[in-house]
Simulated assay, not measured.
Amino acid sequence: MSELVTGEAVALELRPAKLPSRALAVLLDLAVAVVAYIVVTIAVVAATASLDEAAQAALSVALFVLLLVGGPIAVETLSHGRSLGKLACGLRVVRDDGGPIRFRHALVRGLIGVIEILLTLGVIAVIASLVSARGRRLGDVFAGTLVVRERVPEGRTGFVPPPPPWLAGRFSALDLSAVPDGLWLEVRQYLTRMRSLDPQVGWGMAQRLAAELAARTGAPVPPGVPPAPYLAAVLHERQTREARRAFAAAPPAGDRPSAAPGAMPPPMPQAAAPYRPEPSEPYRPVPQDPPPVEDRSGSRPSTGFVPPA
């Protein structure tokens, strides 16, 4: 895995392409370019049979430069580093900082590729890739590019194991400001690959990284704590601090009230009193008129009025 660190101190986990996959991608690109060159040359020669030999030779050179040199440059520029061969092999050309390439990168790679691939049958490119630590040929060195693997198997993706529960929060008082990014990257890479390492080799790497981390933080490794859980706990503490710093809830500057220097803070608003219903009056029956007195002599009830004499 390539240890690329951008200008923002962000570590990029890129896997440089190996020589066999790069050679296969170049052969596929050359096969497509040669077939296109032959087809176009036959068509042009048939169309320009009336021209003299000098004109036909000039057209052949122009077609060679256009298809075998300009074609790959145009394809890599338009596809951002993915030619047909690289697309088939799962490769891609990127800048040293991990960004997509531009025309100038593809131009330098294409022009130098004519010398180290076409004219020398790839001998210079193979030697340069074997000597380089990241498998770069001369065109990549001068252009500032790198060929990386774009398709990574799912089972090989890095997974950092969490620390054991009995170490959670134990290193919250450590000073991690003096630990460089390179050491954090080494710790993370070890934790992601420690299951596939030899036990003795992995134990030695864990002890070395734990000693370096303890020297940077100024606090020794607690007694009885193995180096691998110690590394996982400290890395988890760093990630927790970064997440807390990134997602800390703070009101925007425009929403904060501005106060004059030395002024007293405004009084806190009083909370509204809870609603209490007023006590209701006791129930009092409404007085009603007495029922009419029934007249025994007649069938109609008395109205209370005395008839005139």
Rank of each mutant, 00 (worst) to 15 (best):
R193T: 01
L51A: 08
H80M: 06
S2D: 11
E294C: 08
V141W: 02
R149Q: 09
A219R: 01
P269V: 09
V44R: 02
P165K: 15
G224L: 13
G158C: 07
T192Q: 07
P199R: 10
F142M: 14
L213E: 00
V34K: 07
A243I: 07
L12K: 03
A54N: 09
G98A: 08
A49M: 05
V39G: 13
T41H: 09
P285F: 13
S79M: 05
T41Q: 11
Y37C: 12
P20G: 08
L107Y: 03
G81I: 00
P227M: 15
G135N: 05
R188D: 06
G169A: 15
V123M: 14
D29V: 04
T41I: 12
E13L: 03
V286Q: 10
V32I: 13
W184A: 07
L213N: 00
S280C: 13
G182K: 13
V225P: 10
G204H: 10
R241K: 14
V61G: 07
S129T: 04
P277S: 15
A246K: 06
L209H: 01
K86M: 08
A55L: 13
S21L: 03
A33T: 00
E8G: 15
V5A: 15
V187F: 01
S297E: 15
R216E: 07
S280W: 06
P267A: 11
P285S: 14
L119M: 13
A215I: 04
D97L: 01
I115F: 12
Q56S: 11
L59D: 05
L63E: 08
P20K: 12
A309N: 06
Y190G: 03
S302V: 13
L84N: 02
S299Q: 10
R136A: 12
L87S: 09
S79P: 10
G70N: 03
A263M: 11
L59R: 02
D29H: 04
P267K: 11
G218I: 08
P282W: 15
L78R: 15
V26N: 00
V45L: 06
G99R: 09
V75K: 00
S132E: 04
W166M: 13
A143K: 00
V306G: 05
V201G: 13
A58V: 14
A228T: 05
L213I: 08
A36G: 07
T192Y: 04
W166I: 04
S129H: 03
E237S: 05
